[in-house]
């Protein structure tokens, strides 16, 4: 679904990660792991076409991000940003309605219905008329997920869905991801460093290291925890104790 081959990730004039290669399969939950500032969001920004890769090859559903493919590819992905990135001047419902208004071609009533059913999916129907500033951080992230799902994307990217949330809310978010994958057969790419969450939702994960500027492990969470030769990977999975 998303394939990276020998990708150098970073910003113009600054390579953050070298030679990253992995492939996210259709229908799996793939986690990007690593310490803060190691480049997880940077890799994700390449995957969602915000920044061009510095070197190597990156394809989403077999296509590279170019000026030509951009418009079509944008409609096949959904993104939830770390802060939610809801538009502050619109109510929650209008936030979810926006992509539908712009792209779905649905009639007004159908759009409303669809948006409300998305809000019901994330169990926030009663927040529909509220402004983003009036709801909590966890609720904002759930609304952002609803917005990301609006056009029935094939891949959904979630940047730190559980960061800054209490364990109960963040576990509810994990349940939401699992349920959405089950019901809609979507692919998820999740940036996270919450161990419980990784074991609960991730089918496979890629792990990056800031010091070595590269990907240091790839595999299922249990395989990495139990079978990795790498000191850093073992410490990560054993909460800092090796």
């Amino acid at each position: 679904m998303v394939r990276l081959e020998h990708v150098d990730a970073g910003y113009p004039g600054e390579v953050v990660l070298r030679d990253v290669s992995f492939e996210v399969n259709r229908g799996e939950v793939f986690a990007l792991l690593g310490g803060s500032g190691c480049g997880k969001s940077t890799v994700m920004k390449h995957m969602i076409g915000l920044n061009p890769v510095l070197a190597g090859d990156l394809t989403v559903a077999g296509e590279r991000w170019t000026a030509k493919t951009r418009a079509a590819l944008c409609r096949r992905i959904g993104v939830m940003y770390q802060s939610g990135a809801l538009f502050g001047s619109m109510t929650c419902l209008e936030n979810v309605l926006l992509p539908l208004e712009e792209f779905s071609g649905l009639k007004r009533r159908a759009r409303e219905e669809k948006a409300r059913s998305l809000l019901a999916d994330v169990e926030l129907l009663d927040a529909a008329e509220k402004m983003p500033s009036e709801i909590s951080g966890g609720m904002r992230k759930r609304i952002a997920i609803a917005r990301a799902m609006a056009l029935d994307p094939e891949v959904v990217f979630l940047d730190e869905p559980s960061a800054g949330l209490d364990p109960i809310t963040s576990s509810a978010l994990d349940d939401l991801v699992l349920r959405l994958r089950r019901e809609r057969a979507m692919t998820f790419v999740v940036v996270t460093h919450e161990l419980p969450s990784i074991f609960k939702i991730a089918d496979r994960c890629a792990m990056f290291d800031k010091a070595r500027r590269g990907m240091i492990a790839l595999g299922t969470p249990t395989a990495l925890r139990d079978g990795s030769e790498d000191e850093f990977v073992r410490r990560f999975f054993n909460r800092g104790e090796s």
Binding site: G49, A85, E102
Partner: peptide, 16 residues
Amino acid sequence: TMKVDEELDALSTMGL
């Protein structure tokens, strides 16, 4: 403020 909150990125990745 919208840029700092990644709202501009959100617009771009929504194709808007």
